[in-house]
């Protein structure tokens, strides 16, 4: 009697747990389409009113008179992101090769915690650091050196802060990718008389190239959506940047700075949701492409 009671409750528990599990599973599968759909619904009115090309390719940003041209925000985002990648990608590739093929044990023991901690630092802290150190450096040292004058709140400051933020992220992926290059391949190259560096240049990098490309893609999508840190140092001036010392106004900053007013100006909420949608779609595309490229490595990409 007692035994069968127990059995029923066990089966029941198992069943209940299964139900909960399916429910949770459904939630996670629905999340991304729901985000996409919700943002699209909210931003569609703007397209209907102003037309697609007008919204994306126009410079005119006058919310009060119903003019929403996103070009300068998109350009600012591109400037900051691409500059951040130019700064961080070489550092990441060189460091990952160093850590895998050259570094001694104690260097690894120091570097791994450093990378972990860098990855865990919140973006607002990066922003504060940017204001304390990078912005003055750009305005006092770097800009005068190139003959420009700036307050320091510029595309370059945003890009430097962003570069440091995405380094741990890309570095972790690159390390995992380099680890998957077969030992035998490296040994056969060495046994044919190639030096260590030649082996790395012609064998390792060649073998890992798709992985390296996709790590850059993932870094790009991470950088593109970064909000607070960039917002704090990039200046937030609506203009098409002409050089790296100009202030910019990337898409995430646009959303974060204006959500308070978005209900009081007609179509403003649509415009901000469109900014979120653009961000989401771009991040989605780069993420999917990079992940598919990286999948055959069967590695943990975090």
């Amino acid at each position: 009697m007692k035994l069968s009671d127990l059995k029923i409750s066990r089966q029941l528990r198992s069943k209940l747990h299964n139900k909960w599990m399916y429910l949770c599973f459904a939630v996670i599968l629905i999340l991304a389409p729901a985000l996409l759909f919700g943002l699209y619904i909210k931003s569609a009115p703007l397209f209907e009113q102003n037309g697609f090309s007008e919204v994306i390719f126009s410079n005119e940003w006058k919310p009060l008179s119903g003019k929403f041209g996103f070009l300068s925000f998109i350009l600012s985002s591109l400037w900051v992101t691409i500059l951040a990648l130019i700064l961080s990608v070489p550092v990441c590739i060189l460091t990952s090769i160093y850590l895998i093929y050259y570094a001694k044990g104690f260097v690894l023991k120091i570097m791994h915690p450093i990378i972990d901690i860098l990855a865990g630092i919140p973006s607002v802290i990066y922003g504060v650091w940017g204001i304390l150190m990078i912005v003055p450096m750009v305005s006092k040292d770097i800009a005068p050196f190139f003959g420009y004058e700036t307050t320091g709140f510029s595309i370059l400051s945003g890009a430097i802060v962003l570069a440091v933020m995405i380094i741990p992220f890309m570095l972790n992926i690159l390390i995992e990718i380099l680890r998957t290059v077969p030992e035998g391949l490296i040994e056969s190259s060495l046994s044919l008389g190639a030096s260590k560096w030649q082996t790395i240049k012609f064998v390792v990098v060649k073998k890992a190239l798709p992985g390296i490309v996709s790590s850059i893609g993932l870094g790009l999508s991470r950088a593109f959506g970064e909000t607070i840190a960039v917002l704090m140092v990039v200046g937030n001036v609506v203009q098409n940047p002409t050089n790296v010392f100009d202030a910019g106004y990337p898409l995430p900053a646009l959303i974060a700075n204006n959500y308070g007013e978005m209900m009081s100006i007609p179509m403003y909420d649509s415009a901000l949701m469109l900014a979120a949608l653009i961000l989401f779609v771009i991040v989605l595309i780069f993420n999917i492409l990079s992940r598919i490229l990286i999948r055959r490595y069967e590695i943990k990409v975090a």
Partner: peptide, 20 residues
């Protein structure tokens, strides 16, 4: 793959969506 992609979604997008 879906989870990894969700991981990559910027937090501002979640925030904006949540707000809506």
């Amino acid at each position: 793959l879906i989870l990894d992609i969700l991981w990559g979604v910027p937090s501002i997008v979640y925030g904006a969506f949540g707000f809506t």
